[in-house]
Design a protein around this nucleic acid. Structure first.
Lengths: 159, 159
DNA sequence: TTGAAAAGTTCCATTTTAGAACCTATATTG
DNA sequence: CAATATAGGTTCTAAAATGGAACTTTTCAA
């Protein structure tokens, strides 16, 4: 199978990774969360080639993760900003960073620590069950067929 | 900059993505969480070529995310299993799936829903502050220099 | 003994990527 | 006013990654 066909799977992970599961894309989004918005600034901070950057930004705009907004009326210049869809990628980036902090840091320790703005404390964000509030780790969850599967089955049976 | 040099950044995200931020790798890890363990089973479930699969599995073993354990004494056959380092990738996969469920599902809805084994309820896992317990969303966190940065600065000043 | 399956490896054509050069429009400098 | 700089790209070429198919080994099953 070619990579461009992975999003045909009825799987949210595969669909997501088809958009941002390749080289550079999540790093570009990381820069967006750091308030980088302009073409040349992405280039400087990432060291990515213009070609690649142009290609990735276009795709992120097409997918509705970024919007391209003009910032100078006279010149044709644009900023790329996260949409709501893009902002909600935050847990993904945070998860990657937390894992890297734990497993890939050098002997000095994590390059970044996190402070929760509203409570002011240093925090290690964690996943919890929105029902009982307990921590969630690997193997604590059963994945069950959702409507995106069961409705299709039901209509196949009727047909 | 070449992709192979991105892990030189003092950034946990970049270091993590250098390992699994490319085509196929996170999908292979998804299969591991689904208890897929054998070469041919990865191939069947993913449709990836043997060449690519071999390359990715080798890298994941090298990085300590999978271990290769023989499962048949007589034949040279192996299973690939998640290590603790690999199991802790769970929040990343869950974040991607949750985002995809919300933003990429078709009109039928999410393909999968989640049940928390210990409390038995259907759950939408969420990120919270481990200090105050409040939900964490984009822009709720300040990233501050951690020891991996400050210690390096301190030793540079001394030197 | 013949055949199938598991777990790869090798080879080649096609795609993707990195790096450099080039282009267009506005802004700035001398 | 001409020359240069800057932003935001596009085009070109060579190198690297990928997809697909064919080929190895080793073992087990018929």
């Amino acid at each position: 199978m070619k990579w461009e066909d992975v999003d045909s799977q009825n799987c949210s992970m595969a669909r997501g990774l088809a958009i941002f599961g390749d080289r550079w894309t999540l790093l570009i989004i990381r820069e967006c969360f750091r308030r980088v918005r302009r073409f040349s600034d992405f280039q400087k901070s990432l060291g990515i080639t213009k070609h690649r950057l142009s290609n990735r930004l276009t795709r992120l705009v097409d997918e509705g993760i970024l919007t391209k907004v003009p910032y100078d009326d006279s010149a044709k210049r644009f900023e790329y900003r996260l949409t709501d869809k893009g902002l909600e990628l935050y847990p993904i980036l945070m998860s990657v960073a937390l894992w890297g902090d734990k497993w890939l840091s050098d002997e000095d320790g994590a390059p970044v620590i996190y402070r929760h703005k509203s409570c002011g404390e240093i925090t290690q964000p964690k996943f919890v069950c929105d029902c009982c509030g307990d921590d969630i780790h690997a193997r604590d969850i059963d994945a069950i067929a959702g409507p995106g599967v069961t409705k299709k089955l039901a209509s196949n049976i009727k047909a």
